Computed example of a mutant assay.
Amino acid sequence: MNNDLRVRLLLALQSSLLGHITANIRAVTCSVSGNDITVGVVFDGEISEEDAETMEEVGSELASHFDRESVNVQCLRVDAPGPLRSKTLELWAYKRKE
Results as ranks from 00 to 15, higher is better:
24 N>Y: 00
25 I>Q: 06
80 A>L: 13
1 M>G: 14
63 A>C: 04
70 S>Y: 06
24 N>W: 01
47 I>M: 04
79 D>N: 10
49 E>H: 09
71 V>L: 09
94 Y>C: 03
30 C>M: 09
72 N>P: 04
93 A>R: 06
41 V>L: 07
12 A>H: 07
37 I>F: 07
41 V>N: 08
73 V>C: 07
77 R>H: 00
29 T>A: 05
11 L>Y: 11
43 F>P: 01
18 L>S: 14
26 R>F: 03
34 G>V: 00
93 A>P: 03
17 L>A: 05
25 I>M: 14
22 T>M: 01
91 L>H: 09
89 L>A: 10
72 N>M: 14
74 Q>H: 15
5 L>C: 03
13 L>I: 05
8 R>A: 10
55 M>P: 06
40 G>Y: 11
79 D>G: 08
2 N>V: 02
6 R>K: 14
40 G>C: 11
88 T>E: 07
28 V>F: 00
32 V>C: 11
36 D>K: 15
84 L>T: 04
30 C>I: 02
47 I>P: 03
71 V>N: 06
45 G>R: 01
10 L>N: 03
52 A>C: 04
78 V>K: 10
13 L>S: 11
95 K>Q: 13
61 E>A: 14
72 N>E: 13
26 R>V: 00
29 T>Q: 02
1 M>N: 12
86 S>Q: 13
29 T>W: 04
24 N>S: 04
80 A>I: 09
63 A>S: 14
95 K>V: 15
95 K>P: 05
51 D>F: 01
98 E>L: 09
28 V>L: 05
19 G>S: 06
52 A>S: 13
72 N>H: 14
39 V>M: 09
46 E>M: 11
50 E>R: 05
14 Q>S: 13
52 A>R: 10
59 G>V: 11
92 W>C: 07
48 S>M: 01
79 D>S: 09
77 R>M: 12
81 P>I: 08
56 E>C: 03
37 I>K: 03
20 H>M: 12
4 D>L: 07
65 H>W: 12
50 E>P: 00
16 S>H: 02
43 F>N: 01
98 E>S: 08
38 T>A: 12
49 E>P: 05
96 R>E: 11
21 I>T: 08
89 L>G: 04
22 T>D: 03
35 N>Q: 13
76 L>A: 05
68 R>F: 14
11 L>T: 15
88 T>I: 13
64 S>Y: 10
73 V>D: 08
48 S>D: 01
31 S>V: 07
15 S>T: 15
21 I>P: 02
17 L>H: 05
32 V>Y: 01
67 D>Q: 12
40 G>I: 07
37 I>P: 00
74 Q>S: 15
85 R>N: 08
75 C>R: 08
54 T>L: 09
23 A>T: 14
44 D>K: 02
40 G>V: 07
11 L>F: 14
56 E>L: 10
62 L>H: 08
7 V>C: 02
17 L>G: 04
78 V>F: 05
48 S>N: 02
8 R>L: 07
19 G>D: 01
44 D>H: 03
45 G>M: 05
32 V>R: 12
89 L>Y: 09
46 E>C: 07
68 R>P: 03
65 H>C: 04
90 E>Q: 07
73 V>H: 10
82 G>C: 01
